[in-house]
Design a binder for these strands. Structure first.
Length: 275
DNA sequence: TACCAGGTAAAAA
DNA sequence: TTTTTACATGGT
């Protein structure tokens, strides 16, 4: 099997846990011990291997996408060196050694996924998102290609409410598809300009923009302070029994600069493991 | 059965 | 300007 080498340390099971923790993800499908995803024209199967992962098939076009997908661009050594000076992170870094946050490789998919997860539980969000994928995506072998922006431009909001979207979220998703925002072009902008460009669209608030910075662009300083899961995690590790406010979580985030994104992922994974 | 869940925008105060 | 409310599904 073709090996794709990744920087050590890398823990495949730990890093892909979010694709299994809240139910099945038809676009990032855990199947028979491997992660299946449509890359380019076909489905790729990724499995763990010494020194990296096995990827089948693997070619020059697939390789950079899979590298990005698996979070190869994160520098864990620098983060661990930083974490060593902070007791909570130091413990989490040790416990979760090799965790590389996966990256959402497609910007449209990343935003739509966040919209589906607004306000509702992640279990509910996965269920609704899977119906969107089944209806508007294309099945390869096991996994589906996530619905393209071009396909959802032609969708009517009523088709989305029929599969469980709220009326507003249906408008948000179709509105995003039909907007003139160049999603791929956001990569060239600094964090604050990405946020203002995204939040200018209806249905995209600060939370959704923060997760776009964190999960799609992989920006080091992204810190979704408004995220309920992150608030719970920060409250557990840095507060007392009560839920810290968004402002308090934002303030605590400053101590992780410039590793807020990795810190957020380790705190969330730590919470998931602890509960 | 209620109630809550990795928000957002619009109405009301 | 700040607070309250509607939204709609899935799990417990």
């Amino acid at each position: 099997m073709p090996l794709l080498d990744l920087p050590e340390p890398y823990d495949f099971e730990l890093s892909t846990a979010r694709y299994r923790a809240f139910g099945t993800d038809l676009a990032n499908l855990w199947h028979d011990g491997g992660l299946h995803r449509v890359v380019g024209r076909g489905e790729v199967r990724i499995t763990t291997a010494p020194g990296g992962v096995d990827v089948e098939p693997l070619d020059r076009e697939i390789e950079p996408v899979v590298r990005k997908l698996l979070g190869a661009e994160f520098d864990l050594d620098e983060f661990y060196a930083f974490a060593a000076g902070e007791p909570v992170l130091a413990a989490l870094a040790q416990e979760l050694r090799g965790l590389r946050p996966p990256i959402a490789v497609e910007p449209f998919e990343s935003v739509v996924t966040s919209i589906t997860a607004q306000q509702v539980s992640l279990h509910a969000a996965f269920a609704i998102r899977n119906r969107l994928i089944e209806q508007f995506g294309i099945r390869a072998v096991h996994a589906y290609a996530f619905p393209t922006r071009g396909r959802l431009v032609r969708a009517e909001p009523e088709e989305l409410t029929a599969i469980g979207f709220s009326g507003r979220k249906a408008e948000y998703v179709v509105g995003l598809a039909r907007s003139d925002l160049d999603l791929a072009g956001l990569e060239a902008l600094p964090d604050d300009e990405v946020k203002s460009a995204l939040t200018a669209l209806p249905g995209i608030g600060e939370w959704t923009a923060d997760w776009f910075l964190a999960r799609h662009l992989g920006r080091a300083r992204a810190w979704p302070a408004g995220d309920l899961g992150l608030r719970k995690a920060v409250s557990r590790f840095y507060g007392d029994s009560s839920l810290l406010s968004i402002g308090e979580v934002r303030a605590i985030g400053e101590r992780f600069d410039p590793f807020q994104n990795l810190a957020a992922h380790y705190l969330l994974a730590g919470l998931l493991r602890a509960t």
